[in-house]
């Protein structure tokens, strides 16, 4: 009778086997997202900063060095593509 009254505890069973682990998994993925995926990006940014590029946004030196890095990067990439035999 107890089993019947409590509907064989199916809801509790689903809660423990599906809902709770599911939530934990989602929580784990969210932590993974902020620590590893985003962390990797911020890590790279941190390294760049340490090399000496200031991250202050509107400082003219930054904009200039950003521009210089950008152009240098593009030129480097183009040269890289063009020197590959297949082109």
């Amino acid at each position: 009778m107890n089993a019947s009254e409590n509907a064989f505890w199916v809801d509790r069973f689903y809660g423990k086997t599906i809902v709770l682990p599911g939530k934990k998994l989602a929580q784990g993925m969210a932590s993974f997202d902020s620590f590893f995926v985003d962390g990797a990006v911020n890590g790279v940014a941190g390294v760049v900063k340490r090399i000496g590029v200031s991250l202050k946004p509107l400082q003219s030196g930054y904009v200039r060095s950003y521009g210089a890095t950008f152009v240098a990067g593009v030129i480097g990439l183009v040269i890289f593509f063009l020197t590959r035999g297949s082109l």
Binding site: M1, N2, A3, S4, E5, N6, A7, F8
Partner: peptide, 19 residues
């Protein structure tokens, strides 16, 4: 079968009908 077994033990008038 399972739902009928559960219905036997319910005391809420609507829960009996639900099962």
């Amino acid at each position: 079968l399972v739902a009928a077994l559960i219905a036997v033990g319910q005391n809420d008038i609507k829960k009996v009908l639900a099962y």
